[in-house]
Design a protein around this nucleic acid. Structure first.
Lengths: 109, 109
DNA sequence: GAAATACTTAAGTGATCGCTTGACAGTTTG
DNA sequence: CAAACTGTCAAGCGATCACTTAAGTATTTC
C-alpha cells in the first residue's frame, strides 16, 4: 500500500487531526509547536501526523535554527480535488445522457 | 475515529482497490461480481471494500433477487471535493494578498 | 427439486496504526 | 557555560486493518 501520491494524500486527509492541521495551515504557515498547542496529544504524536502529511505532499516544512515552519502545498490538494472532480463529472455526464435519452423516448409517444 | 463523513470518505478513497471500484462505477452501475472480476482478491474481500465505500456514502447499492447492483453517489464525492477546494482557495487568497502587499511595498521605493 | 449462481457471514491471522513515555540533540538566552 | 526551548528518535503496546478460507443463505435455472 501507499504506492502512489493519491493513496498518501487521501489517507492523510482521512484523519481529523491531520485535517485540522491542514485547516490551520490554510490560514498561513505555522511552527510545529503552534500546530501542536491546540491538539490533545503529545508532541511526538503531532510529529508523526506531520510526517504523514509531508510524505503525502500536502504539507512542506523547513527548519531554521531550532524552529520548523510548515506550510500547505496547494498542488497536492488540487491533485486529489481533480481526481474527485473527474469521476464525478464522468458520472454526471452519463446521467445527463441517460436523461436526454429518456426524454427523447418520451417524445415518441 | 471514523466520526464524520469526511473521515470515512477520504479513508475510503485512500485505497487503490476502492478507487478502482469508484472509477469503474463512474462509468455506470455494476453488480458485485462485475466489480470483483478484475480485482486480484477473493469476493469476500471485495465485499469488505464495498462496505467501506457504502458507509462512506460514496457508493449506494440495491439488491434485487440475488444480485446486488452498486452505483456512485455523487453528493459524497462533491462533499470531499468541496473541502479540498475551500482550503486550497483560502490558502491561495492568502498568497494573493501577500503578493499584492509585496508589490505595493515595491512601488514605494 | 437438484444444481448452479450470487452473495453473505464467521473465524482467524499477521501487519500496520496511533498513540504513549523516556531519552536525547541542536539552538538560543541569561 | 548553564538553563530553557524546540524538536527528534526509539521502544513498546493495544486496537484496527486487510485479507484469507470455509461454510451458509437466498434465488434462479434446468
Amino acid at each position: 500500500m501507499m504506492n502512489n501520491q493519491l493513496d498518501r494524500a487521501f489517507n492523510a486527509l482521512s484523519d481529523p487531526t491531520r485535517r485540522a492541521i491542514v485547516e490551520r495551515l490554510a490560514g498561513g504557515p505555522a511552527t510545529v509547536s503552534e500546530l501542536a498547542a491546540p491538539l490533545p496529544m503529545s508532541l511526538p504524536a503531532v510529529m508523526l501526523h506531520l510526517k504523514v502529511l509531508e510524505e503525502s505532499g500536502l504539507v512542506a516544512s523547513e527548519k531554521k535554527g531550532r524552529v520548523r515552519t510548515c506550510r500547505i502545498e496547494p498542488v497536492a490538494l488540487s491533485l486529489a480535488e481533480q481526481w474527485l472532480n473527474d469521476r464525478r463529472r464522468l458520472w454526471e455526464s452519463r446521467v445527463d445522457r441517460l436523461g436526454a435519452f429518456l426524454e427523447s423516448e418520451g417524445e415518441k409517444e
